[in-house]
């Protein structure tokens, strides 16, 4: 345990050099009823930083990133996103949600709207962008994820990989400053995983602040500034990807890595 804390500390001092803070989480705790899902989470994400979160199933990875845009409510500690603290104030929540994009494991596209309408919905109603301008932005984003030709199809007519890229485009249309990805490739077939990861790598190269929950270790090595390992609701270890994979410090990390890399 003491070993883990040291690593966190050393990392903190290292990133403290860079300028702006995108997300600041301190002593955050969350319970589901009596179940203590997240325990004393401390995390600071700099602007432009790319973080990969991994850990065994049920360790609280999803819950953690869902707390960042208030899909889940935390009970103790503080979360400050983009300088705004998450409180029960609905105005703050809506503001943060429009600044933070989120992509889900099961896409969650709106099936009754076309691809283009999926992308323009939030800009039109939340940002009050004129419809024409919103469509232009949407087409631009769909081009970025390489499916402009699917603009007028319904989600049900697209493959899984295409749907997930539409979901990414939909988030990007809000011009978010931070993107959260929750196991966005784990419901996809292998050949589709690549097209989605490529999109995410491209985003990373453009300097987007990203938190990705994923078990794609190749992706983590390639784009992450930092890998965070969670277990039982705690941040157990975090480090630069090379160091994290080649030289894990904690026994639980070693066990986890051996399980996902071993077979």
């Amino acid at each position: 345990m003491s070993e883990d804390k040291n690593i966190i500390k050393s990392d903190k001092t290292k990133v403290a050099i860079t300028d702006e803070v995108a997300i600041h989480i301190s002593d955050m705790n969350k319970w589901f009823g009596n179940f203590h899902v997240l325990r004393d989470i401390n995390l600071e994400v700099k602007r432009g930083e790319r973080i990969v979160v991994c850990g065994p199933s049920g360790s609280g990875k999803s819950t953690l990133i869902r707390c960042i845009n208030r899909l889940e409510e935390h009970q103790k500690g503080s979360i400050i996103v983009d300088g705004t603290e998450l409180t029960t104030d609905l105005k703050n929540i809506d503001k943060i949600r429009s600044e933070v994009g989120m992509v889900f494991q099961h896409f969650n596209l709106f099936p009754h709207l076309t691809t283009l309408e999926n992308c323009t919905l939030a800009p039109i109603w939340v940002r009050e962008t004129p419809e024409k301008e919103a469509s232009e932005i949407a087409m631009e984003m769909l081009e970025k994820v390489k499916i402009p030709e699917q603009a007028h199809k319904y989600p049900g007519q697209l493959s899984g990989g295409q749907q997930q890229r539409v979901a990414i485009a939909r988030s990007l249309c809000m011009k978010p400053r931070i993107m959260l990805f929750d196991e966005v490739t784990s419901a996809l077939d292998p050949e589709m995983i690549k097209e989605v990861l490529d999109t995410m790598i491209q985003l990373a190269e453009e300097g987007m602040t990203m938190i990705c929950v994923t078990h794609e270790m190749g992706f983590a090595r390639q784009v992450a500034n930092r890998v965070i390992f969670m277990d039982e609701g705690q941040i157990v270890e975090q480090n630069e990807p090379e160091e994290f994979f080649n030289n894990p410090k904690s026994d639980r990390t070693k066990l986890f890595l051996s399980q996902i890399l071993g077979h």
Partner: peptide, 27 residues
Amino acid sequence: LPLGQHEASASLGLTYWQSQRLVIMPQ
């Protein structure tokens, strides 16, 4: 409706009534 529809519309910043009117109710 899957819970994901509520979450997706909330995560885009739509208010409760907007997401009911534009996403949830039509379906």
